[in-house]
């Protein structure tokens, strides 16, 4: 059973990944492959829309940790949007809100680039 999916959209020069389902140590490699593919395509302005993300474990956060420095160094960012409270709480427990650009709304994140 597939419990995690990713769909990609393009809004001008910004790539948006819509992630849905459960992001854990089993499914994190899918997100990792998608981020790697964007970086390989020199798409450094990235939004990860978490509106349909129901669950995240630290293995999911680890993927963001591994790539944010590279992407920022290349003039882009990975911005996170539309998290539900439970998902946000995990980011918050680990202190991510001071290190990552997290928005309630995708439009805000777009304006932030």
């Amino acid at each position: 059973m597939k419990n995690f999916t990713i769909a990609k959209r393009q809004i001008e020069n910004i790539s948006v990944l819509d992630i849905s389902g459960e992001l854990d140590a089993h499914t994190a490699s899918q997100l990792e492959n998608s981020l790697k593919a964007l970086i390989d395509e020199k798409q450094f302005k990235i939004i990860v829309n978490c509106a349909r993300l129901e669950y995240i474990a630290s293995a999911g956060l680890g993927v963001f940790m591994a790539y944010i420095e590279d992407v920022r160094g290349l003039g882009g960012d990975i911005k996170l949007t539309n998290m539900n409270d439970r998902v946000y709480n995990v980011f918050d427990l680990l202190g991510f809100p001071t290190l990552y650009d997290i928005h309630d709304d995708e439009q805000e994140a777009i304006s932030g680039f």
Binding site: S58, V63, M65, A66, Y67, E69, L93, L94
Partner: peptide
């Protein structure tokens, strides 16, 4: 976490989360 991001490391968060939760 900041140091880990700078070093492009990941992991090490599970035990901390378990203790918090």
């Amino acid at each position: 976490i900041l140091k880990r991001i700078k070093n492009k490391q990941r992991g090490g968060m599970g035990v901390f989360l378990i203790q918090k939760l």
